[in-house]
Design a protein around this nucleic acid. Structure first.
Length: 278
DNA sequence: CAACCGCCCTGGGAGC
DNA sequence: TGCTCCCAGGGCGGTT
């Protein structure tokens, strides 16, 4: 599942291919994914335009032109794969984007593939981005916010939800999904089920670096996104990082050898060590 | 309003 | 071996 690190790596790869070039053609093989694709608007506002910037916000990849933003979300199972030709070579290819390159002869093709169709492809006018439903309520970026300890501590004071749900709430903080929430809480020594309001400021001082280290290590490990994603098995990047608790229920804790506990918090698989996390 | 639950979707693994 | 069932997860809408 693409989380922030995977989307960050993918965005960097796409940036090399697309920035400064013309998005020459977009072919859609269906008009809806998780939601409807604004096909006509996309064709009008993005196709034939020069791409100024490719960047990431939360788990969305944004393609910026003079007039508009293209918005790509990979959902649970999405991939964007660089190909030499337009013909879909993977099942569940829903869109193909052709990139005309000024400097070189042959165009390149970006194939959007998403078996579960939990992703989105959308667009909006430049001025609309801040008010767009995807973006208007988003919390800060965990790797950019300058005083994340104070911010999270203050935000959590009246929250009865678990610290894990709190971290995964995109209105509070973006980009921390279930896997990295489990991992960051283990690193910080905090039990995932504790009410957010009862996590002390001193603990947020451990948690914030834990979140950042977890994300940064995953970004480094996933630095070869395109190469990885071109493999037929499409193994997502997070398998490359060493997961210390996620998916290890019943196994020995790597720090203390106690049994890793498995439970469920608001419907999501939760893993922690009873001895290392309190 | 805060919190939670069910739903969307398909592939893959477990269990029989 | 093949079938069925269940789970994975982000985000959103409905309910409590």
């Amino acid at each position: 599942m693409p989380e922030l690190p995977e989307v960050e790596c993918l965005t960097r790869s796409v940036r090399h291919v697309l920035e400064g070039q013309i998005l020459d053609e977009a072919t859609f093989y269906r008009r809806d994914l998780r939601g409807e694709i604004p096909v006509e608007e996309f064709q009008k506002d993005l196709v034939g335009k020069r791409v100024k910037k490719v960047f990431r916000r939360s788990k969305y990849m944004l393609i910026e032109t003079e007039e508009a933003f293209g918005i790509i979300h990979l959902g649970m199972s999405g991939q964007l794969i660089l190909q030499n030709g337009p013909q879909p070579s993977f099942k569940h290819t829903h869109a193909v984007f052709r990139v005309r390159r000024d400097d070189q002869g042959e165009p390149l093709y970006l194939h959007y593939i998403d078996p579960r169709r939990f992703g989105w492809i959308s667009c909006c006018k430049r001025a609309e981005l801040a008010h767009h439903p995807f973006f208007r309520d988003l919390g800060p970026e965990p790797l950019l916010h300058e005083d994340l300890v104070s911010y999270l501590w203050q935000k959590s004071r009246n929250k009865s939800v678990s610290i894990k749900s709190f971290l995964m709430d995109a209105k509070i903080l973006v980009g921390v999904g279930n896997i990295y929430a489990n991992e960051a809480l283990f690193r910080a020594g905090i039990r995932p089920g504790r009410p957010a309001s009862r996590v002390r400021r001193r603990e947020f001082e451990l948690l914030v670096p834990a979140i950042r280290a977890t994300l940064n290590e995953a970004i480094e490990a996933g630095g070869t996104t395109f190469r990885d994603h071109r493999q037929a098995d499409g193994q997502p990047g997070y398998f490359a990082v060493s997961l210390k608790v996620y998916g290890r229920g019943g196994e020995a804790c790597l720090q203390c050898a106690s049994t890793i506990q498995q439970s469920r918090i608001t419907g999501r698989a939760t893993y922690y060590c009873r001895r290392c996390q309190s």
